[in-house]
């Protein structure tokens, strides 16, 4: 019945929102107090050797991924998937979820993102040597911010990104598809409930391909970096980062 469906959507939305808030790493309120890096601090980042800045970013991404794994574990049904599929989904989707979550720690007014204790503009990441990737990531965060999503909407969108049934190497595609459909229905229900414009769900769908391009670009940049500095990656990068992104 429609009432039962509405109740089920509300219930799922509630569980996923709770999981999101419990694992979101930073609360918006605590970030409001934070300032931007001063020029001399920006220069310190810019003067870091490329390897050191890559290592720092790999560490930050790995920290964030641990929260995403915790989020995944609390999504209804995720832990009922076989472990192969849990790993496939996290391997393909954890960076995408971080990019979605980034809109929570992004200030579109001055194009800065929370990084290593303060708000940082794209110039902070100059020594990575990937200006195009950084510019694309900032553009993506800006466009996500312009949708003014509420936490509940970010939570459900993140969950649906993670539960993408079209990832390669899934054993039980059908089960993932069912979970994704349930999450997407709950997202649509929440958008309707919040009186969002009709096009928002479709706009979010278009973000999925942007996320995939960003992750592909990250892999490409990592391969190029690793070709020049194989020992840095091997000895200094966090093991979890290597498992996810730098498998041989």
């Amino acid at each position: 019945s429609p009432t039962a469906t509405t109740a089920a959507h509300d219930h799922l939305a509630q569980i996923i929102s709770k999981s999101h808030l419990e694992t979101c790493q930073y609360l918006r309120e605590e970030l409001q107090e934070m300032s931007c890096f001063l020029q001399e601090e920006v220069e310190k980042f810019q003067n870091k050797p490329q390897e050191a800045m890559w290592q720092l970013c790999a560490v930050k991404i790995t920290d964030a991924i641990q929260y995403v794994v915790e989020f995944a574990k609390r999504i209804d049904g995720f832990m009922n998937l076989c472990q192969n599929d849990q790993i496939v989904l996290l391997k393909a989707g954890s960076l995408e979820v971080i990019l979605v979550r980034m809109c929570r720690v992004f200030d579109p007014q001055n194009n800065t993102v929370y990084f290593d204790g303060k708000f940082a503009g794209p110039d902070v990441f100059k020594s990575l040597g990937c200006d195009d990737l950084i510019a694309s990531v900032f553009d993506f965060a800006k466009s996500m911010c312009s949708l003014h999503l509420e936490e509940e909407e970010i939570a459900l969108f993140s969950a649906s990104v993670l539960l993408s049934a079209d990832r390669s190497w899934l054993r039980d595609k059908l089960q993932v598809e069912r979970l994704q459909q349930k999450t997407e229905s709950a997202l649509q229900h929440v958008l309707q409930k919040n009186h969002r414009d009709d096009g928002l769900f479709e706009k979010l769908r278009t973000k999925v391909s942007a996320l995939r391009s960003l992750c592909a670009l990250h892999s490409q940049k990592l391969s190029a970096f690793r070709a020049v500095y194989p020992d840095t990656v091997r000895t200094l990068f966090p093991p979890l980062y290597k498992e996810l992104f730098a498998a041989d």
Binding site: V69, K73, Q83, I87, L90, L240
Partner: peptide, 16 residues
Amino acid sequence: KEKHKILHQLLQNSTS
């Protein structure tokens, strides 16, 4: 699998 040792561990740890 050995290839995803840490991810395995994280998934198996009980939710804190």
